Computed example of a mutant assay.
Amino acid sequence: MNHDEDDCYTLLGVQRSASAKDIKAAYHRALLAAHPDKKPHSKSKDIHAIQQAYRVLSDPVRRAQHDSDRQRIPAGPRPAQVISLAEFDEVPEQERWTHACRCGGSYAITGADMDGGMHLVPCTSCSEVVWVGYELVKD
C-alpha cells in the first residue's frame, strides 16, 4: 500500500480543509461508489477502508492525530530501513558517519546534515535510501 492509499482524505476524495458536512457527503458518495450493486467487483475491504476513513475524519481528536501522523512521514523515497546513528562508524576527523549498504556501497551522513535535520540518506552506489535515527544535543 502506498502512502496516498492510506490517507483518509484521499480515500474520501476531500481536501484537508474539508468541513464536517463535506466529509459526511464525501463518505456517502464513496460508499455508494464502492457498493457491490454499483461496483460488482468491489471488495469489502474497500468499504471497510472508507468507513474507517470517515471514523477518523469525523472525530476531531482522531482527525488531528491523523494529520499529525501524516506530517511526520517524510516525503520522497521510502527508506529501506531505519538505522540508528549508533550503528554507523564514526570518522571523527571528517565529522562524518558511514554505514555499509548490502550492495557494497555505503551511506554517509555529516554533522552538517544532521544540523540541517537530514534523516534520509542515500547509498553512494545504489538507489536504496535509509532513515538515520539520531537526536541533536543542544549546547
Rank of each mutant, 00 (worst) to 15 (best):
G76H: 01
P74H: 02
L85K: 02
S68M: 13
E95R: 15
H66T: 04
L85Q: 02
A64G: 04
A86M: 08
D67I: 02
H99R: 07
P77A: 08
S84G: 09
G76Y: 00
W97L: 07
I83L: 11
Q81H: 07
E87D: 15
A100L: 09
D67C: 11
R70G: 06
V91Q: 08
R78N: 08
A64C: 03
V82E: 13
S68T: 13
A64F: 10
T98E: 12
C101H: 03
R72K: 08
P79N: 06
V82S: 14
G76W: 00
E87T: 05
D69I: 02
R78S: 11
I83K: 11
E93D: 11
A64Q: 13
A100C: 05
D67T: 03
W97K: 05
A64E: 15
W97T: 00
Q65V: 10
V82A: 07
Q71W: 02
Q94R: 14
R78V: 13
Q65S: 09
Q65E: 15
R78L: 09
P79I: 06
Q94S: 09
A80H: 07
D67S: 04
V82H: 12
P92N: 06
E93S: 12
A75V: 06
W97V: 04
P77D: 10
V91K: 10
I83C: 11
R70M: 14
R78D: 07
P79E: 01
Q71I: 08
Q94N: 13
E90T: 05
A100R: 03
L85F: 00
W97R: 05
D67P: 08
A100Y: 05
E93L: 07
L85W: 09
C101L: 05
D67N: 14
